[in-house]
Design a protein around this nucleic acid. Structure first.
Lengths: 248, 248
DNA sequence: ACCTGAACACCGTTCAAGT
DNA sequence: ACCTGAACACCGTTCAAGT
């Protein structure tokens, strides 16, 4: 009995906490986790613009300030939501060739973000997630680059290049159109494409039929019209580019 | 005199407008252009978070609703600011090899955005700029890809891949850290890096000394600590990747 | 420890009114 | 045409107070 004294002391503390809770039945059982989950649901269903402490508070039937107590500032809530989405991530066994592993990582990241399109603008702009995300993916990428025989002097530059291109592409792919007057805007975009001058912009004019669905010319987000072929091309380009980096 | 009747009629209208203005000396001479310029100044100096119709109105000594009348909604103001930044862009003469031209485009885009780092989050998330931006750059990219002998079936996929990687990388590079408690956050990031397990994450552990300045591990934005080497690596990777795309 | 409630200093947007 | 002013329906965050 005396041998477990430390454990007992700790238990006494826990009991005191429990009594405290019992004395205060107004505690609604609000958790940081519940808040983050609900916030993600709001972002997915209604968009980032509809998320606020006050709207969250209404859905959770609590006072807005109760949320502040749990998650801190609004900025911290957002980065908590982002990192909660990318927490679980299977570490790849390094049996397959590095090209296949890199391609796997890329496609799985993209489908993760496509599941929460409204999160893209946060991933692109928030540096705050750096402290929270798991390191597994980054180990996998670095392992693949090592297997690709990229020299040590340039391996981290290639690391940045790959991750930046990958994440950046998907973020841009999922960029959103304007909230209001989308119809007029879409018309304006199409009208401007129709006016492409054959002599001034011959190459754009040559491919003008297919241009509509591509970057800087499309009228719908990647959430509705995913750029599958373009992403496949990017991965292919990156892989052959990294293959060449072994001879730098 | 009668031959220029149309012109005269138009002039009469203009005179009426001028009289109208003369009768209303309260018109402060507020222009859409002045508003956009001032908005960009606010974004550059104090960050996007400090920009609002009301703060702009104070700086311009007008009523907030006067701004609404000129630029429309807040969202439209933002996309006006973005497109105003990327309006002037010299068209490259297609004399140099396509690799050099593509590299030029990439570096000039990056230095443009580095001049306005706080604009990056808008470029990454706004699709609305599509209607406003000049088509010159896109023609140049497509021209380069044609010279690279990328087949017609995959040229637009490569177009997306290149632009997405380029713009996406720079947007991520310029991502901002948290506004408050940046010191504690930076400590947390560094502390987590120090705890990298050599057996679980061997590759990260091997390069742990250099990791601090790179994507997903840095504590400062690309505005303060630009990722020059990483960007150079990206361009090199993309170019050799596109070279291979000719044989797809 | 966990939550309420009031208060503060903000927002974008609409709409009627002035000149 | 261009701008003011009031009003509406929102915000995040602080801080004292309750249990």
């Amino acid at each position: 009995l005396f041998a477990v004294q430390d454990d007992l002391l700790f238990t006494v503390q826990q009991v005191l906490v429990l009594l405290h809770v019992a004395k205060a039945p107004l505690s609604v059982g609000l958790t940081r986790e519940r808040i983050v989950t609900e916030a993600l649901a709001v972002i997915d269903d209604e968009g980032l613009g509809s998320l606020s402490f006050r709207s969250l508070a209404r859905r959770l039937s609590v006072n807005p300030t109760a949320i502040v107590w749990h998650v801190g500032t609004y900025e911290q809530l957002l980065s908590a939501v982002v990192s909660s989405t990318f927490l679980v991530r299977p570490k790849h066994e390094p049996t397959a060739p590095w090209q296949a592993r890199v391609s796997d990582i890329a496609h799985s990241f993209r489908s993760d973000l496509h599941r929460h399109p409204n999160l893209a603008q946060l991933v692109g702009t928030q540096l705050a997630t750096n402290a929270a995300t798991e390191f597994g993916v980054f180990e996998d990428v670095l392992s693949a680059l090592t297997d690709a025989q990229v020299p040590d002097e340039s391996i981290l530059a290639c690391f940045d290049a790959f991750l930046g291109a990958l994440v950046g592409f998907v973020v841009l792919e999922l960029a959103q159109g304007p909230k209001h007057r989308t119809a007029e805007w879409a018309e304006a975009v199409v009208r401007k494409q129709a006016q492409i001058d054959p002599t001034l912009l011959p190459h754009l004019h040559k491919h003008r039929e297919q241009l509509g669905g591509h970057l800087s010319f499309r009228t719908s987000s990647g959430a509705e019209a995913p750029l599958d072929d373009s992403f496949a091309a990017l991965i292919r380009i990156l892989i052959t580019g990294i293959e060449a980096a072994a001879r730098w």
